[in-house]
């Protein structure tokens, strides 16, 4: 399949502070959406709208250059959290949810 499928534009909470970047390349290594690339020994966001807010980059940037409000992009989980007021989480064990194939 050619280009990745894009989701809604301009909704991701991803932020990146280039001045804190130490150029370790970890974010490029962990991002499953190819959001980051190394440019001149620093990370650069190349396709922001592909970010799916998984949080891998922020968790693994030792230098605190990245932050993102990570969470599950799953309608069932979000509806549940709206109803119960709790944190959205995929109920992987249960049979009801289709999250996490």
């Amino acid at each position: 399949m050619g280009a990745p499928v894009k989701y809604l534009a301009n909704v991701t909470t991803l932020t990146y502070a280039a001045d804190k970047c130490a150029g370790c390349g970890r974010c490029v290594e962990v991002c499953p959406q190819g959001v980051f690339e190394m440019r001149d020994k620093r990370a650069a966001i190349i396709v922001r709208d592909l970010c799916m807010e998984c949080g891998a980059c922020a968790r693994n940037c030792e230098f605190g250059a990245i932050s993102v409000n990570a969470g599950v992009g799953c309608a069932a989980a979000l509806i549940n959290s709206m109803l119960t007021g709790g944190e959205p989480s995929c109920d992987c064990g249960g049979s009801g949810s289709s999250c996490c194939g």
Binding site: V11, T13, L50, M52
Partner: peptide, 18 residues
């Protein structure tokens, strides 16, 4: 509901749809 199975739908996007 398929957003639960996809790999590219982020939380903010799905929240906006909902």
């Amino acid at each position: 509901q398929f957003t639960g199975s996809t790999t590219f739908t982020g939380m903010s996007g799905v929240r906006k749809e909902l």
